[in-house]
Amino acid sequence: MTIASYVFLIIGGLFYLLGGLGVLRMPDTFNRIQAGTKATTLGAFSILIGVALANPVWSWISKIIIIIVFIIISNPIGSSAIAKATYNSKNIPDNLVQDALKERGEE
């Protein structure tokens, strides 16, 4: 049980590290949002599952379920909000090969 929980914790830490590295290394804002959101979501899941395996008690597991559900709903919504705000604040990278939002013809 302990070994399994540590495996999950290490995987979670690795994905967190990857998320930070992605935010640092990616060349434009949209790609930074992508790397940050995906890596931290899976990292948080993995860490939470690891902690749940280390403490297999109902009072821990129930709260961990709440955190997981909250993160899975809120994290993509937050990143889409940042993406839309980035687009609206005219901070559009010039390497896009196609821009459907512009073709829509408003703003």
Partner: peptide, 12 residues
């Protein structure tokens, strides 16, 4: 963006 990622790591 970086603040958002930072917050998620702090939760962990």
């Amino acid at each position: 963006v970086s603040l958002d990622t930072f917050n998620m790591i702090v939760i962990g």
